[in-house]
Simulated assay, not measured.
Amino acid sequence: LGLWDWDIANDTLTINERQWQMLGYIPEATPLKSTFWHSLIHPEDAPAVQATFLAHAKGLAAGYKLEHRMLHKEGHWLWVLSHAMVTERDTAGRATRMLGTHLDITERMQFQSELQQANAQLAQLSITDGLTGVGNRRYFDQCLQSEWARSARQQQPLALLMIDIDHFKRYNDHYGHQGGDACLREVAQILSTCLCRPGELLMRYGGEEFAILLLDTDAVGASVVAQRCLDRIRTAALPHVASLVSDCVSFSIGVASTIPFQNTEPEDLVAQADAALYQAKHQGRARYVCAPQVLTETL
């Protein structure tokens, strides 16, 4: 352990050999000034160090304990676990001496950071479609539930686009499954370019079907996004000679929008969008259809 003894009254700080070595310095017998010591504390950690010290010095906390960073002589930061206690006070109760220890916890903190990064990556993978790189069905379900609740609280519209690649089974039969996978990846990339706001979320719903969830968007705004998707896939002109609609890949899109109420469920919005998607296919595909009516509150 690095040991330090701070004579607060005379502002002199004495540290042991281990503390010197921890900071990368050759041990010296000369007492230090607190200004030098404070200069080694990471600027982001300094306020917490000061607040913790004052709380203990004023008798508001039984002890002083926290983790913070200190500057090594070679320029890198090391993490220390600092324990300390006021050992002497003057007649007015002011702290005049403080003893403390430092334990180098840099390796532990690095391990924790790497573990957090790994967990974050795993969490991201769990909501990402492995083929297309967009959100997966699990992410869709999570977003729909959370945004439905938010929209209900704020009484803001929530819209959903259900997008189906026309005659995709015929595409797979003609180009093979590897060709079908490549098509799905290209479609996902094209659809991602159709999103213009942070509140527009693209997910692969399953198979050849994608979903776009539009926050704070009514049917008119959702129709604009649907038309943009149709325009972009038409411009991309991905060959689909087996299609019964066009020589290129096309979409059928169902659009639904609502302001959620207490007596409605997220699945109702999906059902409305699915019904509209069915109508788009029934009317000849390569188009979008809005749900005939938005969900309304039952009185």
Rank of each mutant, 00 (worst) to 15 (best):
R150T: 08
W37Y: 14
Q283M: 14
R138Y: 07
L3N: 07
F53C: 09
G133N: 04
G2N: 10
G133Y: 06
Y278N: 03
R97V: 07
H42V: 03
R150Y: 09
A182Y: 01
S257M: 13
A211P: 04
A84C: 09
T193S: 13
R185G: 05
R69D: 05
C194V: 01
S243V: 11
G254R: 08
S151I: 07
W37K: 11
G63W: 02
Q21H: 11
G179K: 00
R69G: 06
G179H: 01
A118G: 14
C143E: 13
F140Y: 06
V49S: 04
A286T: 10
V270K: 05
Y278C: 03
G284T: 14
C229N: 05
T258D: 08
E209K: 03
A256P: 05
W37G: 15
A51D: 12
H72D: 09
R150P: 08
P31I: 12
Y171N: 02
T258S: 14
W148E: 07
V294C: 15
C183T: 02
A9N: 03
Q189C: 13
S34F: 07
R153S: 04
P157G: 10
R232C: 12
P157M: 10
L131Y: 00
Q156D: 08
L78P: 00
D181G: 00
D274N: 12
I8Y: 08
G24P: 05
